[in-house]
Design a protein around this nucleic acid. Structure first.
Lengths: 355, 355
DNA sequence: TTGTATGCGTTATCAG
DNA sequence: CTGATAACGCATACAA
């Protein structure tokens, strides 16, 4: 592949002049520029970003550490990140951690070696020592969706605790007393906060908390299926289930369906996060829809600010989820299938800087 | 950040010795190695991949050009690519082309600048001149899912034509005579081949082809909705619809649902590609499930062979899709929600090398 | 307006 | 077993 020197020779100038033409800095006579451009064209010259990065200390590359692109929530986040990154001439390296701290660590190492300009990460655990490593090395970092203990860093997320408390309060208002919850793993802030919201709502309403109605497990369909099966087998089963993410909700749905449980008559299901077609499958569902695409976009904006930018305080951006009640906004429910509409939504930040 | 020289100084050796320790090449006395390792640890030294790449001409980075991660099919492909890449110490840059040749071109440029070791791409059009550019520059390339005209290069895909012909033949055998098809854009091989299969099946069975029953548009939900609306409005509407991808099927499903069309009594729907929960929404659906995860894995294997490897003939790997009939294999239908099962499936190649 | 010298961090080559 | 030197491709600082 042609180098800057090849181009320089062909255009009968020095390499630096070629560099000036490419980067459009410094004065170059029009005639010279033309010769250079012709040489570039003739040789199919493409600047070597590796060499460039070595000097400029900019790789124009971001890393996105999420649990699993296969989850529509993260897929949409990834799409938001990629769109915003591309808009700013950054590439995105995709990293699936599967909520596995070891994998996360491996990716952190890759990130350091590759000298990416910044990282957007959903921690596999709120301890995640390796992510702290990034901060120590002064790699720009933005957390997304999940918190990290005792680390003052930019973060974009939705209000989990209050939202889930409101969700449960409203179930209680509808007359439900035996409400089950199926939450995610320990040490993941979203799982903890959604569960805590559940507890607070029951306490406020004076409804006793029955440990048998509280289930936890990986954020997977299997957890939903298994837990729902167990809940249905209770001598005094719940009348409502709060699934803490979409995969768990799918599992619950499958099991409820299998066992012929009618919704919402025999069981009311509420959940965090969207899955396409969910509204068609179970029109009685209440869904907390997090603005995943915007979360990705905003996280990327914050990251790029950090990379290009001035020092500033860490920001915590808290977005409002939309709550889709049964029968409501049917159309919008399937919007994930086509991001066109979401993409054009202007970004609104409800940020609260802290510390 | 510490450099190899810092480490060398601290360990009182030359940089090259440090390099030898890191890369585990050449002989180094145990004592020296230990000193070096201690220095590396003390300084938190991480080798600079940029500088390394400059010499070694290996970036350990792949690019994945797909139309849209948001489509569960591509999501799953991406996951397969990422898993296999990671296994071989490669990172993956995610590129969404949205079936837009201009975007594709921009990404090709990025790919060239970044000197990625190889590219996996689903062409936005079977012309896509820019992708040819990669071949000219001798960048290892593997096509996935879609063909490119007159280009002898590795490719992984499913049998589209025969599969769709079989699908339609079976509809005819069930007594359907007015069968509609909603296919994707022009210049995309999958859209063309699936449509061609439809045509062949009708011809073979002596069923006249009615142009009013043939619709094309972008592979989106909107296309499915719009086309289905138009088909239902025909004076002599079809009794079956063949949706050529999952998004189109979703659109069709939404419109059929809205208009209260009962399936399969009033309308039989068949489709390519899976969407989670599809089976719950419409148990009467017939779905051609392409092994997306495996496609990603195999494409990556081929690419890595090219990168690391010996010259060899271009390979064309054609995989068998699974066809899920109504009511059949209910469990497997939702397997996309959790890749665990897919991931453990051993890779079987039904390859046919050509040329 | 253009060019020279130098260095980014690493590794290949050759020498000791 | 270890080291000196050069080179990868480009851009900064300075000079002309």
């Amino acid at each position: 592949m042609a180098t800057i020197r090849d181009v320089a020779e062909r255009a009968r100038v020095s390499p630096i002049t070629v560099s000036r033409v490419i980067n459009e800095i410094g004065p170059v006579k029009d005639e010279t520029r033309l010769r250079v451009l012709q040489a570039i064209d003739a040789l199919n010259y493409v600047p070597n970003q590796q060499a460039r990065s070595l000097r400029s200390r900019r790789t124009h590359t971001l890393a996105l550490l999420i649990t699993d692109v296969t989850n529509p929530f993260w897929t949409t986040v990834a799409r938001g990140v990629e769109d915003k990154a591309t808009e700013n001439n950054f590439s995105v390296i995709l990293c699936n951690t599967d909520e596995d701290v070891t994998k996360e660590q491996r990716y952190v190492k890759v990130v350091l070696e590759k000298r990416v300009d910044g990282v957007i990460a959903a921690p596999a655990s709120y301890e995640s020592a390796h992510l702290r490593q990034l901060c120590e090395q002064h790699i720009p970092l933005v957390l997304i969706d999940r918190r990290l203990d005792r680390l003052d860093v930019d973060i974009v997320l939705c209000e989990n605790l209050a939202t889930s408390r409101g969700l449960i309060t409203s179930l209680i208002a509808q007359g439900h007393r035996r409400i089950a919850v199926i939450s995610g793993p320990e040490k993941i802030s979203t799982a903890d906060e959604r569960l805590e919201g559940y507890r607070q709502a029951l306490q406020e309403a004076g409804v006793p908390i029955d440990p048998a109605l509280i289930r936890r497990g990986p954020f997977t369909q299997e957890t939903g299926q298994k837990s729902t099966g167990e809940l249905l087998a209770l001598s005094h089963p719940p009348t409502a289930i709060f699934a803490c993410n979409n995969f768990i909700a799918c599992g619950a749905l499958l099991t409820l369906n299998e066992q012929g449980v009618r919704m919402p008559q025999q069981m009311k299901l509420v959940t965090f996060d969207e899955i396409p077609l969910l509204s068609l499958v179970a029109p009685s569902l209440t869904v907390v829809v997090q603005p995943a695409y915007q979360m990705g976009v905003i996280a990327t904006e914050l990251l790029i600010e950090q990379i290009l930018g001035e020092q500033r305080e860490s920001q915590e951006v808290v977005l409002e989820p939309r709550i889709l009640l049964p029968g409501q906004l049917q159309d919008e429910r399937s919007s994930m299938l086509s991001l066109t509409s979401i993409r054009s939504t202007p970004v609104q930040r409800q940020s609260s800087s802290r510390q």
